[in-house]
Amino acid sequence: MIDYTPLLLTFKLAISTTILLFFLAIPLCYWLAFTRSKTKPFIETLVSMPLVLPPTVLGFYFLLFLSPNTVVGHWLEHVLGIKLLFSFKGLVVTSILYSLPFMVQPIQAGLSSLPKSYLETGMLMGKSKLSILTHILLPNIKPSIITAIVLSFAHTIGEFGVVLMIGGNIPGKTKVASIAIYNEVEALNYANANFYAMVLLIVSFLVLLSVYILNHGYLKKHRS
């Protein structure tokens, strides 16, 4: 009997992470694309860290950082009443940080590739930064936005190490599909493991295929 909850939880996590990450990443991408600040390389390095760090390292430090024994963990749990460790909320927060470079880098590259004169024309017209961003800049980097959204979504679907460290393996709460596969293999239940793995494989293939088709169509339209 296959339990569909891990798959539903995986997609719920991927959708929540992608939506929240998109809105959080946009101001950061704008700043990174147009700032002349000397702190830019430092921030860029921090954002890119999840690309090279083993997920368990990140998970381990999140675990320590969010523990009720730390100032932050204690404040979150006792003052705000938010318990992040071994909860779905905690998975979303850590997934956002873990997938940050997949959202930030394509959008930042897209914004940097636009002529600076678009931004300056908007400024001289007296438009606000928000108006310039939403009316001029973002609509002209659609391929970068689609790439960022799909990569973040696909990357969150495939998370394992961070999710295991922060969420544990609680059925219905934090047991996502990647962990369910591991459990089924451990239990030598290959049929179930194969089902979860096949769903993740097909979904990942389809979302990546959609990026290439959409971007190819966009570029063809705008080059003609």
């Binding site: 002529p115 678009y118 300056e120 024309t121 009316h135 001029i136 002209n140 705008h222």
Partner: peptide
Amino acid sequence: YVFQDNALFPN
């Protein structure tokens, strides 16, 4: 300001 590249918004 009309820039050298016109800066017309493509969208």
